[in-house]
Design a protein around this nucleic acid. Sequence first.
DNA 1: ATATCCTTGGAACGTTCGGTCCACGAGCGG
DNA 2: CCGCTCGTGGACCGAACGTTCCAAGGATAT
Lengths: 192, 192
Amino acid sequence: MTVTGFEANRARVIGIAAELFARNGYHGTGIAELGTAAGLGRGALYHYIGSKEAVLYAISKEQVDSMNAYAEQLLDEDLDAEELVRRMARGLLRNIAEHRAEWAVFFREYTALTGEWRDHVITARERYEGYWRQALDNGVRAKVLRQTPRLLVKGILGMLNYTYLWYEPGGELTPDEVADLFLDALIEGIRA
Amino acid sequence: MTVTGFEANRARVIGIAAELFARNGYHGTGIAELGTAAGLGRGALYHYIGSKEAVLYAISKEQVDSMNAYAEQLLDEDLDAEELVRRMARGLLRNIAEHRAEWAVFFREYTALTGEWRDHVITARERYEGYWRQALDNGVRAKVLRQTPRLLVKGILGMLNYTYLWYEPGGELTPDEVADLFLDALIEGIRA
DNA sequence: ATATCCTTGGAACGTTCGGTCCACGAGCGG
DNA sequence: CCGCTCGTGGACCGAACGTTCCAAGGATAT
């Protein structure tokens, strides 16, 4: 059970780091600051994190990976075409709402990653975009959606991703409601 | 004419800084690095910039201010309701395409600003969002657009702002075309 | 030629950076 | 009570940080 203790502690430190990175930026947050916030000295801190960049990688990777896993699961379920798109949107917004700090770090700071770490995160991000393309193509094939330019995926993702900046958990609307609201507008159009 | 020399040099340095900040982050870019890139020693550099944070402020403020000025101009012109919204979108995407580095810095790094500088930038940003709200309300009043939740402004801005990450000037589509493509989808809807 | 001002490079400041290292202490199976 | 592992604090490292300062260069007006 000491293994569990280690992992739990590592996760705790990474969570604290996500908050700090989100507030002050990756380069703007010092190791000393992180140590103080975690109540750990330099030695203990490095025992858990390995390096500062490893923390950034862990924060970034985990979110994208979890969204990829969720998308893969949905695509396997062969749902109604519109329902598939709606579920992907709801899943993303739910995750963003639950992990705002982590998503803020991911969106703003993934460029601070170097080498393979950077490549992995970028690849994972592109994979996610690919799943969205699949979902929309699926809708077109089922004649539920109009044929629209590929670029629209970027627009939809922009609409959804941007929520990390303004969505307040505990506000009027749940993440699911926001997702539906956006998709209603997009699918039905907003012309009078 | 020496005044012009000073301002031109300052603008040149700020432009170079925008590229560096966009690539390596604000905290990730050193004064030494900026000096080397600008071909200036420490003394000359500070003669033009005052401080590092002043550079970040200048980069951030200029873009938002210019979009606010543009929006105010359009709102004064009493255009057709749909045309107004389309022009605001085109104007924003044209500006983003022309100043990708500056917008990247603004979106990712404005949180690094402190005190009044931070307040000013945030206020200017909110003002811009207000203009979009006006433009959409205008469309509803003219019965061109359906009544939609206020929150949709966030979605539209997310869609448009996100382009700073992927739009390649000189690619297949002009900024105007991308703006129209997004607004077509949103206004007409994408249901088959 | 002189005085004035803008511009400039580079030394130097104290601080903080991310990371390493080591000695010590707690826990524990033998 | 030994010997070993794991967890830990803090001293310490060289490098880099943003900023200040100053002496001198260059140009222009008198």
